[in-house]
Design a protein around this nucleic acid. Structure first.
Lengths: 237, 237
DNA sequence: ATTGACATGTGATGCACATCACACAGCTGC
DNA sequence: GCAGCTGTGTGATGTGCATCACATGTCAAT
Protein backbone atom coordinates (compact mmCIF):
# COMPACT_ATOMS: atom_id res chain seq x y z
CA UNK A 1 0.00 0.00 0.00
CA UNK A 2 1.88 3.05 -1.12
CA UNK A 3 0.94 6.64 -0.64
CA UNK A 4 -0.06 8.92 -3.42
CA UNK A 5 2.80 11.24 -4.35
CA UNK A 6 0.58 14.31 -4.24
CA UNK A 7 -0.38 14.98 -0.69
CA UNK A 8 -3.31 17.23 -1.54
CA UNK A 9 -4.59 14.52 -3.78
CA UNK A 10 -4.39 11.96 -1.03
CA UNK A 11 -6.98 13.85 0.92
CA UNK A 12 -9.34 14.41 -1.95
CA UNK A 13 -9.51 10.98 -3.41
CA UNK A 14 -10.20 7.74 -1.69
CA UNK A 15 -8.59 5.89 -4.52
CA UNK A 16 -5.25 6.10 -2.78
CA UNK A 17 -6.53 3.45 -0.44
CA UNK A 18 -7.12 1.21 -3.40
CA UNK A 19 -5.67 -2.25 -3.79
CA UNK A 20 -4.00 -1.53 -7.05
CA UNK A 21 -1.68 1.30 -6.15
CA UNK A 22 -0.15 0.92 -9.59
CA UNK A 23 -3.12 2.36 -11.36
CA UNK A 24 -2.50 6.04 -11.11
CA UNK A 25 -0.62 6.87 -7.96
CA UNK A 26 2.45 5.77 -9.88
CA UNK A 27 2.00 8.36 -12.58
CA UNK A 28 4.64 11.03 -12.85
CA UNK A 29 3.42 14.18 -11.10
CA UNK A 30 2.79 16.13 -14.29
CA UNK A 31 0.76 13.32 -15.85
CA UNK A 32 -1.03 12.85 -12.57
CA UNK A 33 -2.10 16.48 -12.50
CA UNK A 34 -3.47 16.20 -16.00
CA UNK A 35 -5.20 12.95 -15.14
CA UNK A 36 -6.74 14.50 -12.08
CA UNK A 37 -7.87 17.61 -13.92
CA UNK A 38 -9.90 15.75 -16.48
CA UNK A 39 -11.69 13.50 -14.00
CA UNK A 40 -14.90 14.18 -12.13
CA UNK A 41 -16.09 12.54 -8.96
CA UNK A 42 -19.43 10.81 -9.10
CA UNK A 43 -21.52 9.36 -6.28
CA UNK A 44 -23.50 6.23 -7.09
CA UNK A 45 -26.37 5.39 -4.78
CA UNK A 46 -26.78 1.70 -4.07
CA UNK A 47 -28.59 -0.05 -6.89
CA UNK A 48 -27.87 2.57 -9.52
CA UNK A 49 -26.65 1.45 -12.90
CA UNK A 50 -23.46 3.04 -14.18
CA UNK A 51 -23.82 1.54 -17.63
CA UNK A 52 -25.68 -1.32 -19.22
CA UNK A 53 -24.75 -4.11 -21.59
CA UNK A 54 -25.09 -2.99 -25.19
CA UNK A 55 -25.02 0.73 -24.42
CA UNK A 56 -22.65 2.93 -26.37
CA UNK A 57 -19.63 3.53 -24.15
CA UNK A 58 -19.15 7.18 -23.29
CA UNK A 59 -16.93 7.11 -20.25
CA UNK A 60 -14.25 5.24 -18.35
CA UNK A 61 -14.36 5.09 -14.56
CA UNK A 62 -12.17 4.10 -11.66
CA UNK A 63 -13.84 2.77 -8.56
CA UNK A 64 -12.93 4.75 -5.42
CA UNK A 65 -15.31 3.26 -2.88
CA UNK A 66 -17.99 0.61 -2.78
CA UNK A 67 -18.52 -2.50 -4.83
CA UNK A 68 -19.87 -2.58 -8.36
CA UNK A 69 -21.42 -5.71 -9.81
CA UNK A 70 -20.50 -6.50 -13.40
CA UNK A 71 -22.88 -8.91 -15.05
CA UNK A 72 -24.15 -10.10 -18.37
CA UNK A 73 -27.52 -11.61 -19.18
CA UNK A 74 -29.18 -13.68 -21.83
CA UNK A 75 -32.64 -13.19 -23.28
CA UNK A 76 -34.24 -15.79 -21.06
CA UNK A 77 -33.33 -14.05 -17.83
CA UNK A 78 -30.21 -15.96 -16.90
CA UNK A 79 -27.36 -13.87 -15.59
CA UNK A 80 -23.62 -14.40 -15.44
CA UNK A 81 -21.95 -12.54 -12.61
CA UNK A 82 -18.70 -11.52 -14.25
CA UNK A 83 -17.02 -9.74 -11.38
CA UNK A 84 -17.50 -7.67 -8.27
CA UNK A 85 -15.40 -4.59 -8.90
CA UNK A 86 -13.65 -3.08 -5.91
CA UNK A 87 -11.79 0.17 -5.29
CA UNK A 88 -8.97 0.54 -7.79
CA UNK A 89 -10.70 -1.37 -10.56
CA UNK A 90 -11.23 0.32 -13.90
CA UNK A 91 -14.61 0.08 -15.61
CA UNK A 92 -15.35 0.50 -19.27
CA UNK A 93 -11.75 0.05 -20.33
CA UNK A 94 -12.27 -2.70 -22.85
CA UNK A 95 -15.23 -0.94 -24.44
CA UNK A 96 -13.19 2.23 -24.78
CA UNK A 97 -10.18 0.53 -26.36
CA UNK A 98 -12.18 -1.64 -28.71
CA UNK A 99 -14.55 1.24 -29.47
CA UNK A 100 -17.49 -1.09 -28.97
CA UNK A 101 -20.58 -0.93 -26.77
CA UNK A 102 -20.30 -2.03 -23.17
CA UNK A 103 -20.03 -5.80 -22.88
CA UNK A 104 -21.40 -5.91 -19.33
CA UNK A 105 -23.81 -4.15 -17.02
CA UNK A 106 -22.31 -2.26 -14.07
CA UNK A 107 -24.50 -1.81 -11.04
CA UNK A 108 -23.53 -0.43 -7.63
CA UNK A 109 -24.43 -2.97 -4.95
CA UNK A 110 -23.39 -0.56 -2.24
CA UNK A 111 -23.26 3.19 -2.06
CA UNK A 112 -20.25 3.85 -4.27
CA UNK A 113 -17.94 6.57 -5.43
CA UNK A 114 -16.08 6.73 -8.70
CA UNK A 115 -13.73 8.89 -10.69
CA UNK A 116 -15.21 9.47 -14.11
CA UNK A 117 -13.57 10.32 -17.44
CA UNK A 118 -15.03 11.17 -20.80
CA UNK A 119 -14.01 8.32 -23.04
CA UNK A 120 -12.36 10.65 -25.55
CA UNK A 121 -10.42 12.40 -22.79
CA UNK A 122 -9.28 9.09 -21.42
CA UNK A 123 -8.17 7.76 -24.77
CA UNK A 124 -6.38 10.99 -25.55
CA UNK A 125 -4.63 10.77 -22.20
CA UNK A 126 -3.28 7.29 -22.69
CA UNK A 127 -2.22 8.16 -26.21
CA UNK A 128 0.07 10.77 -24.75
CA UNK A 129 1.31 8.96 -21.65
CA UNK A 130 2.96 5.58 -21.94
CA UNK A 131 2.48 4.93 -18.24
CA UNK A 132 -1.25 5.28 -18.74
CA UNK A 133 -1.48 2.89 -21.64
CA UNK A 134 0.74 0.41 -19.84
CA UNK A 135 -1.50 0.48 -16.83
CA UNK A 136 -4.47 -0.04 -19.14
CA UNK A 137 -2.76 -3.00 -20.75
CA UNK A 138 -1.89 -4.55 -17.40
CA UNK A 139 -5.40 -4.07 -16.16
CA UNK A 140 -6.84 -5.70 -19.26
CA UNK A 141 -4.35 -8.49 -18.99
CA UNK A 142 -5.66 -9.31 -15.54
CA UNK A 143 -9.26 -9.12 -16.66
CA UNK A 144 -8.43 -11.42 -19.53
CA UNK A 145 -6.86 -13.95 -17.24
CA UNK A 146 -9.77 -14.06 -14.87
CA UNK A 147 -12.26 -14.30 -17.74
CA UNK A 148 -10.24 -17.19 -19.10
CA UNK A 149 -10.23 -18.83 -15.72
CA UNK A 150 -13.99 -18.44 -15.53
CA UNK A 151 -14.39 -20.07 -18.91
CA UNK A 152 -12.16 -22.98 -17.85
CA UNK A 153 -14.05 -23.45 -14.64
CA UNK A 154 -17.27 -23.68 -16.60
CA UNK A 155 -15.94 -25.90 -19.35
CA UNK A 156 -13.57 -28.25 -17.57
CA UNK A 157 -15.14 -29.04 -14.21
CA UNK A 158 -18.11 -31.12 -15.14
CA UNK A 159 -19.48 -31.38 -11.63
CA UNK A 160 -20.86 -28.52 -9.58
CA UNK A 161 -18.73 -29.57 -6.65
CA UNK A 162 -15.65 -29.17 -8.83
CA UNK A 163 -16.63 -25.69 -9.93
CA UNK A 164 -17.32 -24.59 -6.39
CA UNK A 165 -13.98 -25.95 -5.23
CA UNK A 166 -12.19 -24.19 -8.07
CA UNK A 167 -13.88 -20.90 -7.30
CA UNK A 168 -13.13 -21.10 -3.59
CA UNK A 169 -9.47 -21.83 -4.22
CA UNK A 170 -9.25 -18.89 -6.58
CA UNK A 171 -10.97 -16.54 -4.17
CA UNK A 172 -8.54 -17.68 -1.50
CA UNK A 173 -5.54 -16.82 -3.68
CA UNK A 174 -7.04 -13.50 -4.66
CA UNK A 175 -7.95 -12.85 -1.04
CA UNK A 176 -4.27 -12.43 -0.24
CA UNK A 177 -3.73 -14.80 2.67
CA UNK A 178 -2.19 -17.11 0.17
CA UNK A 179 0.03 -19.71 1.80
CA UNK A 180 -2.00 -19.56 4.95
CA UNK A 181 -2.72 -23.01 6.28
CA UNK A 182 -6.41 -22.25 6.56
CA UNK A 183 -7.16 -19.43 4.15
CA UNK A 184 -10.15 -17.30 5.02
CA UNK A 185 -12.34 -15.71 2.41
CA UNK A 186 -14.52 -12.71 3.03
CA UNK A 187 -17.52 -13.51 0.88
CA UNK A 188 -20.43 -11.10 0.93
CA UNK A 189 -22.06 -13.24 -1.74
CA UNK A 190 -25.37 -15.03 -1.61
CA UNK A 191 -25.75 -18.55 -2.93
CA UNK A 192 -27.68 -16.94 -5.75
CA UNK A 193 -24.59 -14.86 -6.63
CA UNK A 194 -22.34 -17.90 -6.56
CA UNK A 195 -24.79 -19.78 -8.75
CA UNK A 196 -24.70 -17.06 -11.38
CA UNK A 197 -20.90 -17.01 -11.28
CA UNK A 198 -20.83 -20.76 -11.81
CA UNK A 199 -23.64 -21.10 -14.34
CA UNK A 200 -25.60 -23.25 -11.97
CA UNK A 201 -28.72 -23.12 -9.83
CA UNK A 202 -29.05 -21.67 -6.35
CA UNK A 203 -30.18 -24.99 -4.88
CA UNK A 204 -27.20 -26.87 -6.26
CA UNK A 205 -24.81 -24.37 -4.68
CA UNK A 206 -26.56 -24.67 -1.32
CA UNK A 207 -26.20 -28.43 -1.47
CA UNK A 208 -22.58 -28.33 -2.63
CA UNK A 209 -21.54 -25.91 0.12
CA UNK A 210 -23.32 -27.95 2.76
CA UNK A 211 -21.63 -31.11 1.57
CA UNK A 212 -18.29 -29.36 1.95
CA UNK A 213 -19.26 -28.13 5.40
CA UNK A 214 -20.42 -31.54 6.52
CA UNK A 215 -17.26 -33.23 5.29
CA UNK A 216 -15.23 -30.73 7.30
CA UNK A 217 -13.63 -29.23 4.21
CA UNK A 218 -14.80 -25.70 4.86
CA UNK A 219 -16.54 -23.82 7.63
CA UNK A 220 -18.81 -20.81 7.30
CA UNK A 221 -19.53 -18.15 9.90
CA UNK A 222 -21.45 -15.21 8.50
CA UNK A 223 -19.58 -13.85 5.48
CA UNK A 224 -16.37 -15.55 6.59
CA UNK A 225 -15.57 -18.78 4.82
CA UNK A 226 -12.59 -20.79 6.02
CA UNK A 227 -10.93 -23.51 4.02
CA UNK A 228 -10.05 -26.28 6.43
CA UNK A 229 -8.82 -28.93 4.02
CA UNK A 230 -7.26 -27.37 0.94
CA UNK A 231 -6.33 -30.81 -0.42
CA UNK A 232 -9.92 -31.99 -0.33
CA UNK A 233 -10.87 -29.06 -2.53
CA UNK A 234 -7.98 -29.70 -4.89
CA UNK A 235 -9.04 -33.32 -5.13
CA UNK A 236 -12.32 -32.22 -6.70
CA UNK A 237 -10.14 -30.54 -9.38
CA UNK B 1 -5.33 -4.63 -46.04
CA UNK B 2 -2.71 -1.92 -45.96
CA UNK B 3 0.86 -2.17 -47.04
CA UNK B 4 3.74 -2.03 -44.68
CA UNK B 5 5.48 1.36 -44.85
CA UNK B 6 8.91 -0.20 -45.22
CA UNK B 7 9.15 -1.81 -48.58
CA UNK B 8 12.12 -3.97 -47.67
CA UNK B 9 10.20 -5.13 -44.70
CA UNK B 10 7.25 -6.09 -46.82
CA UNK B 11 9.35 -8.66 -48.57
CA UNK B 12 10.88 -10.15 -45.48
CA UNK B 13 7.89 -10.62 -43.34
CA UNK B 14 4.66 -12.31 -44.12
CA UNK B 15 3.01 -10.48 -41.29
CA UNK B 16 2.12 -7.66 -43.63
CA UNK B 17 -0.52 -9.93 -45.07
CA UNK B 18 -2.05 -10.25 -41.62
CA UNK B 19 -5.63 -9.49 -40.76
CA UNK B 20 -4.80 -7.01 -38.07
CA UNK B 21 -2.83 -4.43 -39.96
CA UNK B 22 -2.96 -2.29 -36.83
CA UNK B 23 -0.48 -4.41 -35.00
CA UNK B 24 2.81 -3.13 -36.20
CA UNK B 25 2.60 -1.87 -39.74
CA UNK B 26 1.14 1.25 -38.18
CA UNK B 27 4.23 1.97 -36.17
CA UNK B 28 6.16 5.09 -37.03
CA UNK B 29 9.16 4.18 -39.23
CA UNK B 30 11.74 4.70 -36.50
CA UNK B 31 9.86 2.58 -33.99
CA UNK B 32 9.26 0.01 -36.68
CA UNK B 33 12.97 -0.29 -37.38
CA UNK B 34 13.67 -0.83 -33.72
CA UNK B 35 10.85 -3.33 -33.48
CA UNK B 36 12.15 -5.19 -36.47
CA UNK B 37 15.72 -5.21 -35.22
CA UNK B 38 14.92 -6.95 -31.97
CA UNK B 39 12.76 -9.67 -33.47
CA UNK B 40 13.83 -13.02 -34.80
CA UNK B 41 12.01 -15.24 -37.23
CA UNK B 42 11.19 -18.72 -36.08
CA UNK B 43 9.80 -21.66 -38.04
CA UNK B 44 7.48 -23.97 -36.19
CA UNK B 45 6.93 -27.42 -37.67
CA UNK B 46 3.40 -28.70 -37.42
CA UNK B 47 2.69 -30.12 -33.98
CA UNK B 48 5.48 -28.29 -32.20
CA UNK B 49 4.73 -26.57 -28.93
CA UNK B 50 5.70 -22.91 -28.66
CA UNK B 51 4.99 -22.76 -24.95
CA UNK B 52 3.01 -24.72 -22.43
CA UNK B 53 0.58 -23.86 -19.70
CA UNK B 54 2.39 -23.09 -16.45
CA UNK B 55 5.76 -22.47 -18.07
CA UNK B 56 7.63 -19.31 -17.16
CA UNK B 57 7.05 -16.84 -19.98
CA UNK B 58 10.24 -15.86 -21.73
CA UNK B 59 9.08 -14.46 -25.03
CA UNK B 60 6.31 -12.74 -26.91
CA UNK B 61 5.49 -13.77 -30.47
CA UNK B 62 3.50 -12.56 -33.42
CA UNK B 63 2.07 -15.13 -35.78
CA UNK B 64 3.16 -14.60 -39.37
CA UNK B 65 1.85 -17.74 -41.02
CA UNK B 66 -0.03 -20.86 -40.02
CA UNK B 67 -2.48 -21.50 -37.25
CA UNK B 68 -1.59 -21.98 -33.59
CA UNK B 69 -3.91 -23.74 -31.19
CA UNK B 70 -4.25 -22.19 -27.75
CA UNK B 71 -5.66 -24.55 -25.17
CA UNK B 72 -5.87 -25.23 -21.49
CA UNK B 73 -6.33 -28.55 -19.76
CA UNK B 74 -7.42 -29.93 -16.44
CA UNK B 75 -5.85 -32.78 -14.50
CA UNK B 76 -8.32 -35.36 -15.73
CA UNK B 77 -7.47 -34.87 -19.37
CA UNK B 78 -10.24 -32.51 -20.43
CA UNK B 79 -9.18 -29.68 -22.68
CA UNK B 80 -10.62 -26.26 -23.40
CA UNK B 81 -9.77 -24.97 -26.84
CA UNK B 82 -9.31 -21.28 -26.12
CA UNK B 83 -8.53 -19.99 -29.58
CA UNK B 84 -7.03 -20.77 -32.95
CA UNK B 85 -4.49 -18.00 -33.43
CA UNK B 86 -4.02 -16.75 -36.97
CA UNK B 87 -1.49 -14.46 -38.65
CA UNK B 88 -1.38 -11.14 -36.88
CA UNK B 89 -2.28 -12.50 -33.48
CA UNK B 90 0.07 -11.90 -30.58
CA UNK B 91 0.99 -14.76 -28.26
CA UNK B 92 2.23 -14.52 -24.71
CA UNK B 93 1.13 -10.94 -24.28
CA UNK B 94 -0.90 -11.39 -21.15
CA UNK B 95 1.78 -13.49 -19.48
CA UNK B 96 4.35 -10.82 -20.27
CA UNK B 97 2.28 -7.93 -18.94
CA UNK B 98 1.13 -9.72 -15.80
CA UNK B 99 4.59 -11.22 -15.29
CA UNK B 100 3.02 -14.60 -14.69
CA UNK B 101 3.52 -18.03 -16.25
CA UNK B 102 1.76 -18.84 -19.50
CA UNK B 103 -1.93 -19.40 -18.94
CA UNK B 104 -2.38 -21.55 -22.05
CA UNK B 105 -0.52 -24.02 -24.22
CA UNK B 106 0.36 -22.91 -27.76
CA UNK B 107 0.78 -25.61 -30.36
CA UNK B 108 1.21 -25.21 -34.11
CA UNK B 109 -1.47 -27.19 -35.91
CA UNK B 110 0.09 -26.36 -39.28
CA UNK B 111 3.58 -25.52 -40.34
CA UNK B 112 3.87 -22.01 -38.92
CA UNK B 113 6.11 -19.01 -38.88
CA UNK B 114 6.41 -16.44 -36.13
CA UNK B 115 8.24 -13.31 -35.17
CA UNK B 116 9.80 -13.79 -31.77
CA UNK B 117 10.81 -11.29 -29.08
CA UNK B 118 12.59 -11.71 -25.80
CA UNK B 119 10.03 -10.79 -23.19
CA UNK B 120 12.28 -8.17 -21.64
CA UNK B 121 12.99 -6.62 -25.05
CA UNK B 122 9.31 -6.52 -25.81
CA UNK B 123 8.39 -4.94 -22.49
CA UNK B 124 11.15 -2.42 -22.84
CA UNK B 125 9.92 -1.58 -26.32
CA UNK B 126 6.35 -0.88 -25.30
CA UNK B 127 7.57 1.13 -22.33
CA UNK B 128 9.23 3.49 -24.74
CA UNK B 129 6.64 3.58 -27.53
CA UNK B 130 3.08 4.54 -26.76
CA UNK B 131 1.89 3.09 -30.05
CA UNK B 132 3.22 -0.25 -28.97
CA UNK B 133 1.55 -0.28 -25.60
CA UNK B 134 -1.69 0.93 -27.15
CA UNK B 135 -1.63 -1.92 -29.64
CA UNK B 136 -0.98 -4.29 -26.76
CA UNK B 137 -3.91 -2.87 -24.85
CA UNK B 138 -6.22 -3.14 -27.86
CA UNK B 139 -5.12 -6.67 -28.49
CA UNK B 140 -5.74 -7.65 -24.89
CA UNK B 141 -9.06 -5.90 -24.95
CA UNK B 142 -10.15 -8.11 -27.82
CA UNK B 143 -8.88 -11.23 -26.12
CA UNK B 144 -10.74 -10.25 -22.99
CA UNK B 145 -13.97 -9.77 -24.90
CA UNK B 146 -13.79 -13.13 -26.60
CA UNK B 147 -12.89 -14.87 -23.34
CA UNK B 148 -15.88 -13.22 -21.73
CA UNK B 149 -18.05 -14.33 -24.60
CA UNK B 150 -16.80 -17.86 -24.16
CA UNK B 151 -17.64 -17.78 -20.48
CA UNK B 152 -21.12 -16.49 -21.23
CA UNK B 153 -21.71 -19.15 -23.84
CA UNK B 154 -20.79 -21.78 -21.31
CA UNK B 155 -22.72 -20.33 -18.41
CA UNK B 156 -25.85 -18.95 -20.01
CA UNK B 157 -26.85 -21.38 -22.75
CA UNK B 158 -27.93 -24.40 -20.83
CA UNK B 159 -28.48 -26.57 -23.89
CA UNK B 160 -25.79 -27.79 -26.23
CA UNK B 161 -27.85 -26.65 -29.19
CA UNK B 162 -27.82 -23.13 -27.78
CA UNK B 163 -24.06 -23.13 -27.35
CA UNK B 164 -23.49 -24.40 -30.86
CA UNK B 165 -25.81 -21.74 -32.27
CA UNK B 166 -24.05 -19.05 -30.29
CA UNK B 167 -20.64 -20.18 -31.47
CA UNK B 168 -21.68 -20.37 -35.11
CA UNK B 169 -23.17 -16.87 -35.02
CA UNK B 170 -19.99 -15.54 -33.49
CA UNK B 171 -17.76 -17.27 -36.01
CA UNK B 172 -19.93 -15.82 -38.75
CA UNK B 173 -19.46 -12.27 -37.42
CA UNK B 174 -15.74 -12.81 -36.98
CA UNK B 175 -15.55 -14.36 -40.43
CA UNK B 176 -16.20 -10.99 -41.97
CA UNK B 177 -19.12 -11.63 -44.29
CA UNK B 178 -21.25 -10.04 -41.63
CA UNK B 179 -24.54 -8.81 -43.00
CA UNK B 180 -24.49 -11.44 -45.66
CA UNK B 181 -27.85 -13.15 -46.01
CA UNK B 182 -26.27 -16.58 -45.78
CA UNK B 183 -22.98 -16.18 -43.99
CA UNK B 184 -20.37 -18.80 -44.77
CA UNK B 185 -17.86 -19.95 -42.23
CA UNK B 186 -14.56 -21.58 -43.12
CA UNK B 187 -14.19 -24.11 -40.35
CA UNK B 188 -11.21 -26.41 -40.36
CA UNK B 189 -12.39 -27.76 -37.03
CA UNK B 190 -13.33 -31.28 -36.10
CA UNK B 191 -16.35 -32.05 -33.96
CA UNK B 192 -13.82 -32.89 -31.29
CA UNK B 193 -12.44 -29.35 -31.52
CA UNK B 194 -15.88 -27.82 -31.29
CA UNK B 195 -16.69 -30.01 -28.31
CA UNK B 196 -13.64 -28.77 -26.46
CA UNK B 197 -14.53 -25.18 -27.27
CA UNK B 198 -18.02 -25.71 -25.90
CA UNK B 199 -17.20 -27.85 -22.90
CA UNK B 200 -19.19 -30.71 -24.28
CA UNK B 201 -18.71 -34.15 -25.76
CA UNK B 202 -17.91 -35.02 -29.36
CA UNK B 203 -21.06 -37.08 -29.78
CA UNK B 204 -23.31 -34.28 -28.60
CA UNK B 205 -21.80 -31.90 -31.13
CA UNK B 206 -22.28 -34.39 -33.94
CA UNK B 207 -25.93 -34.76 -33.01
CA UNK B 208 -26.47 -31.02 -32.60
CA UNK B 209 -24.92 -30.20 -35.98
CA UNK B 210 -26.93 -32.91 -37.70
CA UNK B 211 -30.12 -31.63 -36.16
CA UNK B 212 -29.33 -28.20 -37.55
CA UNK B 213 -28.55 -29.69 -40.95
CA UNK B 214 -31.72 -31.73 -41.02
CA UNK B 215 -33.87 -28.76 -40.04
CA UNK B 216 -32.35 -26.80 -42.91
CA UNK B 217 -30.74 -24.26 -40.60
CA UNK B 218 -27.22 -24.84 -41.81
CA UNK B 219 -25.49 -26.76 -44.56
CA UNK B 220 -22.03 -28.26 -44.54
CA UNK B 221 -19.79 -29.03 -47.47
CA UNK B 222 -16.28 -29.96 -46.45
CA UNK B 223 -14.90 -27.21 -44.24
CA UNK B 224 -17.47 -24.74 -45.52
CA UNK B 225 -20.43 -24.20 -43.22
CA UNK B 226 -23.28 -22.04 -44.48
CA UNK B 227 -25.90 -20.52 -42.23
CA UNK B 228 -29.21 -20.80 -44.08
CA UNK B 229 -31.57 -19.58 -41.36
CA UNK B 230 -29.90 -17.09 -39.10
CA UNK B 231 -33.15 -16.55 -37.18
CA UNK B 232 -33.43 -20.21 -36.30
CA UNK B 233 -30.00 -20.04 -34.71
CA UNK B 234 -30.89 -16.86 -32.84
CA UNK B 235 -34.05 -18.51 -31.58
CA UNK B 236 -31.91 -21.05 -29.73
CA UNK B 237 -30.50 -18.02 -27.88
C1' DA C 1 -6.68 -53.19 -53.04
C1' DT C 2 -5.41 -53.29 -48.10
C1' DT C 3 -4.27 -51.47 -43.97
C1' DG C 4 -4.47 -48.09 -40.55
C1' DA C 5 -5.58 -43.79 -38.58
C1' DC C 6 -8.83 -40.51 -37.81
C1' DA C 7 -13.48 -38.29 -38.33
C1' DT C 8 -18.22 -38.99 -38.07
C1' DG C 9 -22.86 -41.29 -37.17
C1' DT C 10 -26.05 -43.49 -33.91
C1' DG C 11 -28.21 -46.52 -30.31
C1' DA C 12 -28.65 -47.70 -25.22
C1' DT C 13 -27.97 -46.54 -20.40
C1' DG C 14 -27.54 -44.02 -16.12
C1' DC C 15 -26.92 -40.13 -13.41
C1' DA C 16 -26.14 -35.26 -12.11
C1' DC C 17 -28.48 -31.39 -11.98
C1' DA C 18 -32.35 -27.99 -13.26
C1' DT C 19 -36.69 -27.31 -11.87
C1' DC C 20 -40.69 -27.10 -8.92
C1' DA C 21 -42.49 -26.92 -4.40
C1' DC C 22 -42.51 -25.75 0.17
C1' DA C 23 -40.51 -24.94 4.98
C1' DC C 24 -37.90 -22.25 7.89
C1' DA C 25 -34.68 -18.70 9.42
C1' DG C 26 -33.18 -13.95 9.99
C1' DC C 27 -33.79 -9.24 9.50
C1' DT C 28 -36.41 -4.66 8.78
C1' DG C 29 -39.81 -1.67 9.64
C1' DC C 30 -43.97 -0.60 11.56
C1' DG D 1 -46.20 -8.34 18.23
C1' DC D 2 -46.95 -8.91 12.98
C1' DA D 3 -46.03 -8.59 8.19
C1' DG D 4 -42.91 -8.71 4.40
C1' DC D 5 -38.73 -9.65 2.29
C1' DT D 6 -34.57 -12.04 1.27
C1' DG D 7 -31.66 -15.90 2.05
C1' DT D 8 -31.22 -20.70 3.00
C1' DG D 9 -32.40 -25.84 3.50
C1' DT D 10 -34.31 -30.06 1.48
C1' DG D 11 -37.41 -33.50 -0.83
C1' DA D 12 -39.38 -35.29 -5.34
C1' DT D 13 -39.34 -35.51 -10.28
C1' DG D 14 -37.93 -35.46 -15.02
C1' DT D 15 -34.45 -34.95 -18.56
C1' DG D 16 -30.37 -33.58 -21.19
C1' DC D 17 -26.27 -35.09 -21.94
C1' DA D 18 -21.88 -37.73 -20.76
C1' DT D 19 -20.45 -42.05 -21.40
C1' DC D 20 -19.85 -46.55 -23.47
C1' DA D 21 -19.99 -49.30 -27.47
C1' DC D 22 -19.86 -50.05 -32.30
C1' DA D 23 -20.63 -49.05 -37.18
C1' DT D 24 -19.47 -46.46 -41.09
C1' DG D 25 -17.00 -43.06 -43.92
C1' DT D 26 -12.80 -40.83 -45.61
C1' DC D 27 -8.31 -40.18 -46.84
C1' DA D 28 -3.13 -41.47 -47.19
C1' DA D 29 0.26 -44.47 -47.42
C1' DT D 30 2.33 -48.65 -49.30
Amino acid sequence: MQMCPMSTHTENCLLCKARKPGWFCNLAPQALAEYDAMSSHVMLPMGSILFAEGQAARSVSVVCEGRIKLSRSSQDGKTLLVKIAKPGDVLGLSAALSKTPHEVTAQAIEHAQIKNFQQSDFLHFIQRHVEGSLHAAESLSNEYRTALSDACRLALSSSIAGRVAHLLLELAIEGGTDQDVHPEIHMPLTHEDLASMLGSSRESITRALNNLRRSGTISIRGTKLTILKKESLEMLL
